[in-house]
Each structure stands twice: as C-alpha cells, then as structure tokens.
Amino acid sequence: MALDKYGIAKRIAQELQDGMYVNLGIGIPTLVSNYVPAGISIMLQSENGMLGMGPYPAEEDIDPDLINAGKETVTVLPGGCFFDSAESFGMIRAGKVNLTVLGAMEVSDNGDIAHWKIPGKKGKGLGGALEPGAAAQNIIVAMMHTNPKGESKLLPQCSLPLTGVRCVKKIVSDLAVLAITPQGFKLLERAPGISVEEIKAKTAGRLIIEGEIPEMRL
C-alpha cells in the first residue's frame, strides 16, 4: 500500500542521525519531528531565528514572541537559542544545517526542484524556500510520487519554475525511496506492497533498478 503523509514522515525520520541540525519545511516535512528515533538527539532550526525548536505549547504557555517559520506558536527546548534572520540564512547557506527536508511539486532526475508556484498564477513569494537549494548540503524531498491526475512528479526535467538546481539528494515518496545519482533516480526501497513495476510506471525520469529492491521497514 502507498504510504500516507505520516508514513512518509516516519521513513524520513530514519535518515536522522544523532547530533544533526535539521530544518523542516512546511507540510509533510514538519511531521518528521514526531518520529525522531529513540536515543537520537537533533536540533531543529526555524529560519525566522531559532535553534532548538520544541513542540507546540500548552495553552497557558503560548507566547506571541515565540513562533516558527510557519507563524505557528511553538516552544524552545533547553539548549536552544535565538538569532536574527540574516544569521539564520547565513547558517543555511554556509551548510551548517546538516539536513533540510522540503516538499516539492516536481523533482527532476538530476536533482533540480520546483516547489514554488504554478506559472500564470500570481506567486505569493518564495519565503525562505530558496536558500537550502543553494547550499551544498543534504536535501531530502518528501512528496507524492504522482499528482492528483496520476501524472509523475519525478521527471526528466521540471516543467515548473525551478527553486533549486541539482540540489536534491534523496526522495521519499508515497511509493519509494530514491537517491539522485548522475545516472538518474536510483530506486532504493519500495513502500510495503508496492511493486517495482508500479514505481517504474509512475516515474517519468530516468530510473535505475539494480538487483532486489527491499521494502521499507517502518
């Protein structure tokens, strides 16, 4: 069965390593924080200027001065700290943040990403979505393999305006885990019960299949 958004978040959480500084984008990426494996300690960065972002507050602890990049009220964990936006994007561009998890509308088989706007519709702005793609760091994309019409979102070339060039390292979709290699998407794992044939049929970009492809373990 294809994964739901929680399953995708759970699988991405397996990529976390102890001591990582991690930035989670809005949407499915935010859910990853619910599945941090036991014994692993990470620091979440929020690009409006915080390291050590904690969970949502209890009602009585809500503080209008303490929000995340999605403008939601949050908390700060012991060991956390605050800084300004210029410093925040500096640490992203300089590659100090070890892992960024983003959503995407399209990813191409060379690692280009489009996750901003549909042409012809007025954009609401990129916000802070562009900088991670510019930094030489680890980007994992959380996405559905196909759009609601059933068309592949893993393409030979993005059709939408790019927001990052050759920056995606790995994709976790509802169907599969894939690495971006110079030869294209390399299939690493299948979602439970999903066949290699189905993944093949729903991947428009170059797909590399080598040997037995294991099922994800969730």
Binding site: E47, D84, S85, A86, S88, F89, G90, I92, R93, G123, K124, G125, L126, G127, G128, A129, L130, E131
Partner: peptide, 13 residues
C-alpha cells in the same frame, strides 16, 4: 517585489 527571504535579510544586513 518578491525577494527570497535570506537574500532580503542579507541585503538589509
């Protein structure tokens, strides 16, 4: 004029 957030912050800085 829509400017990427980090670029906006650094232009001001």
């Amino acid at each position: 004029d829509l400017i990427p957030q980090g670029t906006l912050a650094t232009r001001i800085q």
